[in-house]
Computed example of a mutant assay.
Amino acid sequence: MKKVSFAKFGGPDVLQLVDAEAPHAGPCQVRIAVRAAGVNPVDWRNREGQFQRVRPIELPAGVGQDAAGVVDEVGEGVERVEIGDQVFGRGSSTYAEFAVLSSWARIPEGLTFEEAAGYPSVVETALRIIREVGVQPGQTLLASGAAGGVGSAVLQIARDRSIRVIGTAGAANQDYLRSLGATATTYGAGWVERVRQFGRIDAALDLAGSGVIRELVDLTGDPRKVISIGDLGAPELGVRFSGVAGSMPDALADTVRLIAAKKLHIPVEKSYTLADAAAAHIDSQAGHTRGRRVVVPENSDHGLQR
């Protein structure tokens, strides 16, 4: 099979499309024929070796953790899923033609494989950081860098929980944030003053790692009311960096429920082939994403589930 791999840490150029043996499902796992894989910031952070001190990986290593596809192998102890089922979830080395998932759920009706691949990690992250920051119904949450995948999920989950959200994003994404129920404003010069005009900020999320931790602490008045998923230096300012995943099965169940209730939709901004994985990483690192980016094996059937 074809898969994306890297043999040394570095920039996008270290990514290679290689021939590899297909993995096999172990106990409590399923293998899927990948139809699409989600592109997450953790993918390029791992490629750069940013987490080696806390979560070391051995090289050469595959890339990706989210995917959607068709089950073609079921591991020992797995129940309520069969070969041929169409699922989405989290696993490892998902930028590939075949991948093993350790958590999965059936794809909700009407979703394409590409759309489904964009949900697992971003929804789990959104649910986790909303919980960790402690924001309650009726309070106001500031989401810095709100137009990407996690931000899209945060805005919709918060709206479902009657939490008011102020979102910052580029000028081109202001209407998008408003469509998801947020009060929108641009980042850049004067953004703190613009946010202050909207009133009290009870909690804040740094979603983009754009160097705004001090400002978020100032706006909330307490570093304990700020969570970052983008700035590894946040703890130096007393702010928690949230990087340890919670329960993916629970997150997938919530995802299915919210999609079925038409309370959650995350668009796919762009798709890339496996051979173009480096371009996907370049675009992901550049930011300014509206929704999600996905990688699609060239010969996959990535349309609507059947």
Rank of each mutant, 00 (worst) to 15 (best):
T112V: 01
I166M: 03
L111P: 08
L205A: 07
D175G: 07
G77F: 04
S93P: 01
G118D: 07
R178M: 04
R159T: 14
A204L: 03
G148D: 02
P108A: 12
P120M: 05
V87A: 08
A153I: 04
W191A: 12
S162N: 15
L141Q: 09
L155E: 10
E115C: 03
A147K: 11
Q197S: 15
R106C: 00
E82Q: 14
A117G: 08
N173M: 01
L111C: 09
R178H: 01
R161P: 00
T186P: 02
G190R: 05
A143E: 14
V100K: 07
T183I: 15
G84H: 06
R131V: 00
E97N: 13
V74W: 09
A158E: 03
V192G: 00
T186K: 12
T112F: 01
T140L: 03
A182Q: 06
G138C: 12
I201D: 00
P120N: 05
P108C: 10
E132P: 00
A143N: 14
T185L: 14
T140M: 03
T112C: 02
W191I: 07
R196N: 07
D160G: 02
R164H: 13
E73I: 06
G188D: 09
R90E: 11
S179W: 04
V150L: 02
A105H: 14
G151N: 12
I163P: 06
V81S: 02
T186N: 12
L205D: 04
V154H: 07
R80P: 00
A147V: 12
V150H: 02
R196Y: 08
G110Q: 04
F98E: 13
Y119H: 05
Y176L: 02
E73W: 07
A146R: 11
R131S: 15
S103Q: 09
A203C: 03
T140G: 01
G170D: 08
V122N: 08
T185I: 10
S121W: 00
A99V: 02
